[in-house]
């Protein structure tokens, strides 16, 4: 059975190096013989078994004995794991092509998914996402950093998405490091399919913007995301948050009641869809996409490259 794994491994390696082609051919011959109930002529399976056992023998003789005596069973397990792994890799690749992430439309994990096919509040927008991808711009959304920066980092985020919240610490670090050289813009992408209060939070942040308190509200909503909805009703929580950051409550309530920024938020969402955003957080750094809360190095690499291209380094 080990020949099957050997064939897969050597076949992949043979793509990159001709040295592995004879081994891949040998493994294939071995697999073919096994499938036709014949003995592997080249004893590749025996050689692999001996090599693994020998290497283990140098470190843990008992481990070597365990592997040697149960090699066929272990081989079967590895074959099954390999097949399952290959199937998952194929599925993930499909998801990445289809949805821009490896998890698919139904499953979350590192990324809050928006299922464009399921339909939701912005049903009229669905037609617009068919067609060419249009990279997003900063629009008139809240921004930090250099106004005429040559590198713009746009985040499409959802206030109720735990992964958007997770990314905020990274965003803070990036902004702190590059605030004199880049422009950071936050745009709304509320995923109401999953989070019923997502649109409400986006409206609250936009209403706070009217009173120049956007970033304070923005930070507070993310900080208290776990509390909201669990212990306090979202609307009560929003009002309480507005009070705590010192907003004019009359104006704020009026803004919220009138849904003054509904169209603005829908426009953000629409722009996100046109740019191929399928969940949050999704970042665009001069058009180059980062999906999910990636390590800061991933951001630094792209920003530095873009700054260099722009002659800023």
């Amino acid at each position: 059975m080990i020949c099957i794994i050997a064939f897969v491994v050597f076949a992949v390696m043979a793509i990159f190096s001709a040295n592995y082609r004879p081994l891949a051919a040998e493994a294939f011959d071995c697999v073919f013989r096994k499938m036709t109930f014949r003995k592997c002529k080249t004893r590749l399976d025996e050689r692999i078994k001996s090599k693994i056992t020998g290497k283990l023998m140098g470190h843990t003789p008992k481990g070597a004995a365990f592997v040697f005596k149960r090699f066929e069973i272990l081989s079967w397990i590895f074959v099954i794991v390999t097949i399952v792994s290959l199937a998952y890799s194929g599925y993930s690749t499909y998801n990445y092509i289809q949805y821009g992430n490896c998890y698919g439309p139904e499953v979350t994990g590192g990324f809050c998914i928006y299922n464009a096919l399921e339909g939701e509040k912005f049903t009229e927008l669905q037609k617009k996402i068919e067609g060419e991808t249009i990279l997003p711009d900063a629009d008139d959304d809240p921004a930090i950093g250099l106004e005429d920066a040559k590198v713009t980092m746009i985040e499409f985020g959802c206030y109720s998405c735990p992964h958007t919240r997770e990314a905020q610490q990274i965003v803070r670090e990036v902004v702190s490091q590059y605030k004199d050289r880049i422009k950071f813009v936050f745009r709304d992408f509320p995923i109401e399919q999953i989070y019923g209060d997502a649109f409400l939070h986006a409206e609250a942040a936009n209403c706070a913007l009217e009173q120049d308190m956007f970033w304070e509200m923005h930070e507070l909503i993310f900080t208290e995301q776990e509390v909201c909805g669990e212990e306090v009703h979202p609307e009560d929580h929003i009002e309480d948050a507005a009070k705590r950051i010192g907003l004019n409550m009359k104006e704020f309530k009026k803004c919220m009641k009138e849904h003054r920024y509904k169209e603005e938020i829908e426009k953000d969402f629409n722009d996100g869809l046109k740019a191929g955003v399928s969940g949050t957080p999704t970042f665009f750094i001069n058009g180059r996409r980062i999906i999910g809360p990636k390590p800061i190095k991933a951001f630094q690499k792209i920003i530095d490259e873009e700054l260099e291209k722009a002659g800023e380094i």
Binding site: S50, K51, T53, G54, M57
Partner: peptide
């Protein structure tokens, strides 16, 4: 153990 088992194991262990 086959002779090849022995040879390959000795090579890899020591």
């Amino acid at each position: 153990l086959t002779p090849h088992n022995i040879a390959i194991m000795l090579d890899n262990s020591a």
